[in-house]
């Protein structure tokens, strides 16, 4: 069963339509990356799922429960982390976690061990008695992740969890999210750091001006966009007409001779990179370098979006 199912969601702020008819389906255990420019409607969608915002049209279910009818039941099953970290500057990390453990109605007897576990998971055990206000931004993000894990929710809604973090803190958060993914949590994560989402997410959705422009696995999106793979090849000695033969290979769009290499633009659905390699060898080419260019999400993102906002 889908943990999140959204059908034709519309959300407006007055006359501004922030979300316009998006539909999402996230099965259990999936990590869904939500990408889009600022003001695209990502946070709005996440807030609807977190029961903090009323939608105008459409249906939203979390674990099969209608968000508009039973928001309280849904709050038990989700862990929401907003794109800012509001600080109770008068609490320590321990008090902060106990505060939310009580808010999530975790039985008192279990609280201590649960808090110990989540602190270990987020590597914050040594900071248990530190005031929240004194923690670094990265530690605060990890503390926030510890908070959302307290009641062992089915679904994690993470809005820009890595924004504003330094590279080390970002890597720490990413590793933590991978750990959560391995634990089987269903995660909906929005981020601007596309490279990291590519490593983490099983599926992504690209949203612009409140509308979903593409969604699916990374491969599906590349195919959807008809993105071609560029393969850089260096041959030892003369090419001896190999280039002309390569142009005849099905799936090869173009072969450009550059100063030190040949660039081949390839439709992977017709000929895979491995087959291309074999074909060059068959044609008698002595390969000095064979480097398929990584297809990245940035390319997909730039191709799919126009930088427009609501």
């Amino acid at each position: 069963m889908s943990v999140v199912k959204i059908e034709n969601l519309w959300v407006s702020y007055g006359s501004l339509h922030a979300v316009r008819g998006i539909s999402i389906d996230i099965p259990r255990g999936e990590v869904y990356g939500f990408i889009g420019p600022n003001g695209a409607g990502k946070s709005t969608t996440i807030k609807v799922l977190a029961t903090l915002l009323r939608h105008d049209r459409g249906m939203v279910w979390v674990n099969g429960i209608d968000v508009s009818r039973y928001p309280r039941a849904i709050r038990d099953t989700i862990g929401y982390m907003p794109d800012f970290f509001g600080v109770y500057d008068d609490l320590t990390a321990k008090e902060y976690l106990h505060f939310f453990a009580a808010a999530y109605r975790i039985p008192q007897k279990k609280r201590k061990s649960i808090i110990q576990d989540v602190l270990e998971l987020t590597d914050l055990t040594h900071k248990i008695d530190s005031p929240v206000d004194s923690l670094s931004r990265g530690m605060k993000q990890r503390l926030a992740l510890a908070r959302v894990l307290l009641h062992d929710p089915d679904l994690l809604l993470l809005d820009e969890p890595a924004s504003g973090l330094d590279p080390r803190a970002r890597i720490e958060v990413r590793e933590l999210l991978k750990e959560l993914k391995n634990m089987g949590k269903t995660i909906l994560i929005s981020s601007h750091i596309l490279h990291e989402l590519g490593q983490l997410c099983t599926r992504i959705g690209i949203i612009e001006q409140g509308q979903m422009v593409a969604q699916g696995s990374l491969d599906e999106i590349y195919q959807q966009l008809s993105l071609m793979r560029v393969v850089h090849v260096q041959l030892a000695g003369q090419s001896n007409g190999i280039m002309d033969h390569l142009r005849e290979v099905p799936g090869v769009e173009s072969v450009d001779e550059q100063i030190d290499r040949i660039s081949i633009r390839l439709h992977e659905d017709e000929t895979s990179v491995e087959d291309l390699h074999d074909e060059i060898c068959r044609l008698g080419g002595r390969i000095h370098m064979f480097q398929p260019e990584a297809m990245d999400m940035e390319t997909a993102f730039m191709k799919l979006t126009h930088g427009k906002t609501n």
């Binding site: 807030k47 977190a50 038990d76 862990g79 907003p82 970290f85 509001g86 808010a103 109605r105 908070r147």
Partner: peptide
Amino acid sequence: SERSRQTLDVLLATPMS
């Protein structure tokens, strides 16, 4: 003050009414 410090949303996402 909770709203100004941006701590309200997190509190509202809990099951407390």
